[in-house]
Design a binder for these strands. Structure first.
Lengths: 134, 134
DNA sequence: ATTACTGCAAATACTTTGCATACCG
DNA sequence: CGGTATGCAAAGTATTTGCAGTAAT
C-alpha cells in the first residue's frame, strides 16, 4: 500500500477534499510522468476503481487545474493532456512514436515590453524526432 | 482587387496548384494575423465564396501544413488554430478575452543535451491577462 | 439535513472519412 | 480522358452538461 500522506496534505492545502478518487488521480499524474490524456488516466485507474467514470476524471482534472495542482497541456490538437504542476520545463513530442519527453529549458526571454501583461503560465512544445526513432 | 501574385508564387514553389480557394485561404492566414480556427476561416470566406465547405478548409490547411506553408497551433485544447509560417515567435493568450497576441521571444535555450533529437518546430504559449482586460 | 461527490446518458463540438460531382490540363 | 479539387453527409472522437443517486459532514 502506497503512502498518500503528502498528497492528502497537498489537496487539503488547496481546499480540495481528498476523496479516494482524487488522491488516486493526483498520484497517477505525479508518478506516471507520461502527461496522460483523460482516457489514459481512466483506463489505468478503472482497472482498480471499477465504478470510476470518465466524467469524474474530467471533473477532477478541471478542479485540479482551477486550484493550481495540475496543468492542461496543449500538445496534440485533438486532446488534452495533463500533468501535475512542477517547475517550468518544456515538452518534446516525437512525431513518429508520439512519446512526450520533458525538457529542461532556460527561462523565456521576452523581447517585447510585457510589463502590462499578467503572465500565469508558460508552455513550450518542441516537435521532432526522438533518438529512438531516429 | 487584391494582388495575389506573391501567393501564387509561394504555392507553386511548394508544388501546390493555386486554386482560387487555396489562394484565398492562404491570403486570409497571412493577412488576418488572428491565428484563426477552421471555423473562423470558414465563416469569413464563405461570405464571398458561397459554395465553400468546411471540408475544403480542413483539406487545404492540412495540405498547407504538410507542405510547410502553415502551422497548426495548439492553443486551446479543443480546437486547432493556424497561422502562416513566419519566423520563430511565441503566442500570448488572454484568459479573459481569448485574444491571441504574437510575442517576440529569444531563441530557446535547452539545458539538456539534445544533440540526438531532431527538432522540426518550436511553439511557445504564454497564458495570462492582456493589458486591455487588466 | 445539507452539501458535495460520483456516474450515467444525452448533448455538443471539432475533425475525419467516404463517396459523388465538378473542374482543369 | 484522367487526375485533382471540392463539397455534402455520415461517422468518429473528445468533451461538456443535466440530472439522479450516493456518500460525507
Amino acid at each position: 500500500m502506497k503512502n498518500y500522506d503528502h498528497i492528502l496534505k497537498k489537496l487539503k492545502e488547496k481546499g480540495i477534499r481528498p476523496s479516494y478518487i482524487r488522491v488516486r488521480i493526483y498520484s497517477y499524474l505525479e508518478e506516471s510522468r507520461i502527461h496522460p490524456t483523460v482516457d489514459e488516466i481512466y483506463e489505468f485507474l478503472s482497472k482498480e476503481i471499477l465504478t470510476l467514470s470518465k466524467t469524474t476524471v474530467y471533473n477532477t482534472l478541471k478542479l485540479f487545474t482551477e486550484k493550481g495542482l495540475a496543468q492542461q497541456l496543449n500538445i496534440e490538437g485533438n486532446e488534452l493532456r495533463y500533468e501535475a504542476i512542477r517547475g517550468f520545463h518544456g515538452h518534446f513530442k516525437c512525431e513518429k512514436c508520439n512519446s512526450i519527453y520533458d525538457m529542461k529549458i532556460s527561462q523565456l526571454e521576452f523581447e517585447d515590453d510585457i510589463s502590462e501583461f499578467v503572465i500565469n503560465e508558460e508552455q513550450v512544445l518542441v516537435t521532432g524526432v526522438c533518438p529512438k526513432c531516429n
